[in-house]
C-alpha cells in the first residue's frame, strides 16, 4: 500500500463527492417537502450543464456569468416542472406512485428532447484555468475541483442559513413537517413548494456547470445524477446535512473501489450500496423514515 496513492484517491473522491453532495441537496429538498423522489431532477441538472456549455462556448461569457445563467435557467425549468407535472397531482392528493410516474415521464421527455434536438455527442467546456492542477502533499488536485468544493460549501451553507433563520425558511420547514397544518397556519403552500423547486433548480444549475466542466455535457448524464440520488439515500432523504455527508461518502467509496477493485464494477458497487442501505437502513444516516401514507 503506498500512501501517496491512497491520498490521491481520497482527494479524487472528495472532488466528485462534493458535486454529489450538491446534487443530493436538491433531491433532498424536494423530497423533504413533497415526500417523493423527483427523478426528473437529474435531467434538470443535465440541461443546466448544457446551458452552461452554450453560454461559455457560444456566447463566450466567463464562468461566473455562465454559472449565473445556468442557475436561472435551471431554476425556471425546475419551477415549471413542478407546475406542469406535479401541482395538479398534489391538489388532488394523488398517491406517490403517480408522482413518480409523472417524474419519470418528465425525465424521459427532457432527455430524449436533448437527444433529438442537440444530439448525443459529448460537449467539452472551454479550458478555464491555464494551469489546471495544483499539488497538495504530492497529490494533484484540479483547481476547478478545489473551486467547486469551496463554492459548494458556501452554497450549502447559505441554503442552510436561509432555511434555518429566515421567515420563508421557517415556512419551508413547517411545510415539510406537515403540509396540511402549515397551510392551516397561513403558509402559502403553493408558493413555498414553488420556491423549494426554484432553490433545488439553483443547485441543479451549480452542479450542472461543475459536472459539465469535469465530465463534459452530454444527454446521458442522468447516470451520474442517479448516483447523487444514491448519495441522498445514504445520507437520509430529506436531510440536508445527510445529503452532504452521503455525497462525500459515496464519492470517496467509489474512488477507492475504482482504484483498488475494478472500475467496471464501480457502478454495480454503488447500486449494491444503495440496495443494502435501503434494506437495512432506509432512513439513511441522518434522515427520518416516512411510511407512505395511504
Amino acid at each position: 500500500m503506498n500512501f501517496s496513492l491512497i491520498f490521491q484517491t481520497l482527494i479524487t473522491g472528495l472532488a466528485i463527492g462534493g458535486i454529489y453532495s450538491l446534487m443530493a441537496v436538491g433531491y433532498s429538498l424536494i423530497f423533504s417537502i413533497l415526500n417523493f423522489s423527483n427523478f426528473a431532477y437529474g435531467m434538470v441538472i443535465m440541461l443546466a450543464s448544457f446551458m452552461g456549455y452554450f453560454a461559455m462556448s457560444k456566447l463566450h461569457v466567463g464562468m461566473g456569468i455562465a454559472l449565473f445563467l445556468a442557475m436561472v435557467g435551471a431554476g425556471t425549468l425546475s419551477f415549471f416542472n413542478e407546475r406542469v407535472a406535479y401541482s395538479s397531482l398534489r391538489k388532488r392528493h394523488a398517491p406517490p406512485l403517480y408522482f413518480m410516474i409523472s417524474a419519470m415521464g418528465t425525465s424521459i421527455f427532457l432527455e430524449n428532447m436533448v437527444y433529438a434536438t442537440i444530439g448525443s455527442q459529448y460537449n467539452a467546456y472551454p479550458q478555464i484555468f491555464a494551469v489546471p492542477t495544483i499539488k497538495i502533499f504530492g497529490a494533484s488536485l484540479g483547481k476547478m475541483d478545489l473551486f467547486a468544493i469551496i463554492f459548494s460549501i458556501i452554497a450549502i451553507y447559505i441554503l442552510n442559513y436561509f432555511i434555518q433563520h429566515t421567515r420563508t425558511g421557517i415556512s419551508i420547514r413547517a411545510a415539510s413537517y406537515d403540509s396540511t397544518v402549515a397551510e392551516i397556519n397561513g403558509v402559502n403552500l403553493g408558493a413555498v413548494i414553488g420556491l423549494v423547486f426554484i432553490l433545488a433548480g439553483l443547485f441543479a444549475g451549480i452542479s450542472g456547470v461543475f459536472l459539465g466542466i469535469k465530465y463534459m455535457a452530454y444527454p446521458n448524464m442522468g447516470w451520474i445524477t442517479n448516483k447523487a440520488y444514491v448519495a441522498a439515500v445514504i445520507g437520509g432523504l430529506g436531510s440536508l446535512p445527510g445529503a452532504v455527508v452521503g455525497g462525500i461518502i459515496l464519492g470517496v467509496l467509489e474512488s477507492f473501489v475504482s482504484v483498488y477493485v475494478s472500475s467496471t464494477l464501480r457502478d454495480v458497487f454503488s447500486f449494491g450500496t444503495l440496495i443494502i442501505f435501503l434494506v437495512f437502513m432506509p432512513s439513511g444516516l441522518f434522515g427520518k423514515y416516512l411510511e407512505e401514507k395511504v
Binding site: M100, Y229, V233, F271, L274, L278
Partner: peptide, 25 residues
Amino acid sequence: PTLRAKLRSDYFTIATLGFGEAMRV
C-alpha cells in the same frame, strides 16, 4: 430483500433501476 423490508414504493423503484443496470453490467 426489498419486499421483505417493505420499502416505500419510490425506494423499491430505484432499487429495481439499480438492479437492472447491475444485471446488464
